[in-house]
Design a protein around this nucleic acid. Structure first.
Lengths: 205, 205
DNA sequence: GACACCATACCCACTGGTCGGTATAGTAAC
DNA sequence: GTTACTATACCGACCAGTGGGTATGGTGTC
């Protein structure tokens, strides 16, 4: 019976097409029909599943959150005992993810934020929640590290968490401008070094 | 005779309108007629001065380079004796520039890079030159600081220069997502702390 | 100083293509 | 026959770019 090479359903195919194409071309330059072509469905099908292009973008962000949320939640480093090591391992994972074509490892939320700021408030909000939510997942480890390494320096765990996201977003822009993933990796390496310098053994002091 | 409140000519008004509107709405969402309305000229005038919307964007980036290049070249901190202090003062200046409405302090090149990557190669190239050129203007100070503070750590001056730009770009995205400039300032503060940690007096070691 | 000529700047009505979205009819499954 | 989905033809708004024109000022010539 050979169930037609078991593809995901049309809706999911459209969402996956959106993840790829939106990151590659941005919101405005992506045509509904581009997505249909990539997903292998027709426009009729598209508007059956989504009321509008905007609604698809919102759904795509939700889809993105689900995928990435799962990826990081399942990562092995959460088992590490030292919270600083957990943070460093998180950055190492981010570096390892810089493989393949550029639009494959770039952040959807960061991309859309830039473009929809001021023109599509609901989209920007969704992106904000996505980024802030991901940043929030780092706060506990940062707080624990601050405690363990006796850091009391006038900055909050939340601000460092957001800073990590800023570095990643900025690294993606630089990588796009130059067309090399290596650049992004170097920026992450600088951030890693910063975290090592922040949380260092004070025993010698 | 009262020369009619001395406005710049139409071409310059269009370029200034482009700096503002492109940063606020992005390339694709900016209509030629939006720019004309802001500049107070007609579409006919627009196409008299620029062959196409693309060409205007290129001219806007050149205009941007000129303005920002002048701004940073003229900054007072170049007179400081210690190269580390020059770097820190550069970051302080970047922080001080975070005033007014968001699209006023955001980076045009970073914005356009995101959006035109893969769709408008010439524009992306121009953005890349703009960002890389600005980063390059920091390299000499970084090298001097590395020398003075005896840093030999497996990273290059160029990579730190690019990292500063990545942090700034990322900070702008976060600020857009959350709608507050304060966020960008905090990221710059983290970068400042990193540089202080990198270049610190080794006399106590 | 009057005339012819030309260049630059500018205006505005229009067009031709594009694209989000709709209407409608068809098919598969149960 | 009803529900879920897909296909195709089409509509209407929008917008980059055009074409054909005017206004102004300069320059050479007599």
């Amino acid at each position: 019976m050979e169930t037609r090479t078991k593809q995901p359903d049309s809706r999911t195919r459209l969402l996956n097409a959106a993840l790829h194409t939106l990151r590659a071309k941005g919101y405005n330059a992506t045509r509904v029909e581009d997505l249909c072509a990539v997903a292998g469905v027709t426009k009729g099908s598209f508007f059956h599943h989504f009321r509008s292009k905007d609604e698809l973008a919102l759904a795509a962000i939700a889809h993105w959150d689900e995928l990435t949320g799962g990826l990081f939640a399942a990562a092995a480093y959460h088992a590490l005992e030292d919270p600083r090591e957990r943070l460093l391992a998180y950055l190492d994972l981010r570096s390892e993810l810089l493989v393949g074509e550029l639009p494959e490892y770039t952040c959807l939320a960061g991309m859309l934020t830039q473009e929809t700021y001021l023109t599509k408030p609901e989209l920007t909000d969704a992106c904000e929640r996505s980024i802030s939510g991901h940043a929030a997942s780092l706060v506990a480890d940062i707080e624990a590290a601050m405690q363990r390494y006796g850091v009391e320096d006038g900055w909050t765990a939340e601000s460092l968490a957001l800073h990590t996201q800023a570095v990643l977003q900025g690294a993606f822009i630089l990588a796009k401008a130059r067309g090399e993933a290596a650049l992004a990796a170097e920026s992450i390496a600088h951030l890693r070094r910063y975290i090592m310098l922040l949380f260092r053994d004070r025993s010698a002091d």
